[in-house]
Amino acid sequence: MYLQRATGRHLCAGHLAEEVEGRVRETMAADGMPPGGSRVAVALSGGKDSTVLLSLLHGITQESGGLDLVAITVDEGIAGYREETLRAATATAARFGVPHRTGSFADLFGGTLDRVVEGQEHRACSLCGILRRKALTILARDEGADCIATGHNLDDEAQSVLMNWLRGDRDRLLRDPLQPGQRGFLPRFKPLREIPEKEVALYGVIASLFSPMPECPYRHTALRGEARAMLNAMEQRFPGTLERVVQGQRTLARGAAGGIPAPLGACARCGDPASDHLCQACRLLEGGSFRPVRHR
């Protein structure tokens, strides 16, 4: 059913599902996450990655107990796309009996993504990413969560590394993504970070978790799309590229002597992690397109 190109192995549906579940458990154990009794806010967009994530965390919780899950969904305000995935998110949370909280850019920041990107559509994914991260933090804190779990997969991680190279972003390249979060910041976990996107998608199909979803209309404007195409072309020709890119960045971050970026500081306005005096979201919001982030 599936050819795992990096290893050359053929897997049937049952073995692929077992392998995905096993690797997620290993990742969670390796990352020391999250301790029993934790309230975990699961970022649930309604797309395949977050749907699979919620299913897996629900399964692990059912087996071993101890995690108090709450699904949080951000409505960015993308007409013609978000409605369907929001319905899917609601249905997924209900299916697993997990409490579900939704918050919108409009409610949290005073405007939809469609509005803020008018005339700068090429920046849509960048702006959306900054504000979605902020929205997730707000919603998770409102829900009393101890941490946030997101559905980032191996492909996402490799794309981020390449994008940081393409942008010449030394600080992000030299920051160890697996370093424990600093005190006072809501820890974020990525249980799917070792799972290739195709395996996440196949797991979802095997488990009958979703039906085909629409594509985000801004997808084609993103640098991430270029990075994805480049890496996938390399992965096709040189299987294992994605994993090596991610592992290489971690090795680089851990091994860099001198010149290692200082740990993140706190945003002067909202207190969230920031590499400058304000976090990216507050810098963006200061521009006047949205209302300021509410203080807490």
Partner: peptide, 23 residues
């Protein structure tokens, strides 16, 4: 579901589903 090294015959119906939808 089939792996990409499966052999396709002339009378087969092949369907492709894109796995990435986000930004």
């Amino acid at each position: 579901l089939v792996p990409e090294d499966a052999v396709a015959a002339g009378d087969d119906e092949i369907r492709l589903v894109r796995i990435s939808h986000g930004g």
